[in-house]
Design a protein around this nucleic acid. Structure first.
Length: 281
DNA sequence: GCGCAGGTAGAGT
DNA sequence: ACTCTACCTGCG
């Protein structure tokens, strides 16, 4: 077990910020008398499974120090001080300051490229609850069955090979709807070598985004999400309906991307979470 | 029943 | 270059 203390690390906020669809609270046995609400979470990344528990600024990772250092520390971007990004916010920009204070524990994870491509193809014109359900469905149907150290079953994310051999509409059965053909065709491009994920990992933001845009079903917004959440290009600033509304309401002259050069993606997450979760809406 | 949910491709001006 | 629309599905 590894324990950290970090005000910029909050599992609930990371879950709800909608960047990771394979992290979720574990359903505890509901007992009205017991306040076991040390909120426990699980996450599946690659072929790894991890459980965590959070209480305030403290978080426990139920894995060895070696596993933590070699994988999870990087996955959660824990080497980075997110206070540094927040301190860059203009003191006059009360909206952004409020947004950052509201989502103080959000960070940008370093997730798998293939997984992010599929996840954000599915995300379009869809809500977060159904996105999670779709991804659960494809993992259970086409992912590798594995066991946690305790022996519980979990499923890995389906490989490009597993999805490439399906027919265009096979994933309709997993409730992907019209996005089914996007996912299958993306898998085929990766398997055929037409799309080289390893090369994309080495590209600059502009190059990587241009390459991703070649895929059927990937537009500006989805490409930026992939760049931000898989490739950690923090200059990516995905604009969706929520962000678009926020920009109209608070940044009539456009978001000051120059001022926040190199960390716009982090600020986008604060705004997105604020718009989605703050009660004022 | 109707509009919308972290959009995008394709057709039509 | 812009604007418009169809697209699966489920939930309010």
């Amino acid at each position: 077990m590894v324990e950290i203390r970090n005000p910029h690390f909050n599992l609930e906020q990371i879950c709800q910020s909608g960047q990771c669809f394979r992290m979720k609270p574990i359903n505890e046995i509901q007992d009205e008398n017991v306040f076991l609400k040390d909120s426990r979470y699980e996450v599946i990344a690659g072929d790894q499974y991890l459980e965590m528990a959070q209480k305030g600024e403290y978080c426990r990772f139920f894995c060895s120090q070696v596993e933590f250092d070699s994988f999870w520390k990087g996955y959660f971007d824990l080497e980075q001080d997110y206070g540094m990004y927040i301190r860059r916010i203009s003191p006059r920009d009360t909206y952004l300051l409020n947004a950052a204070a509201f989502g103080l524990g959000i960070r940008i994870l370093r997730q798998d490229l293939w997984e992010m491509i599929v996840s954000f193809l599915i995300s379009q014109q869809n809500n977060i609850i159904r996105i999670r359900r779709c991804i659960d469905n494809i993992c259970k149907t086409y992912g590798e069955k594995m066991n946690t150290p305790c022996g519980a079953v979990y499923y890995g994310f389906p490989t490009p090979q597993a999805l490439a051999e399906l027919t265009d509409d096979a994933l309709m059965a997993c409730n992907l709807g019209y996005r089914s053909k996007y996912v299958v065709q993306a898998a085929r491009r990766v398997v055929s070598g037409e799309m080289n994920l390893e090369e994309i990992r080495g590209m600059s933001y502009e190059k990587a985004k241009a390459e991703l845009l070649k895929m059927f079903g990937v537009g500006e917004k989805v490409a930026d999400c992939i760049c931000l959440f898989a490739l950690h290009h923090l200059e990516a600033f995905p604009v969706d309906t929520h962000i678009s509304q926020a920009l109209q309401a608070h940044y009539k002259r456009g978001f000051p991307k120059k001022r926040y050069k190199g960390c716009q993606g982090v600020l986008q997450q604060y705004i997105f979470y604020y718009e989605l979760k703050s009660i004022s809406k």
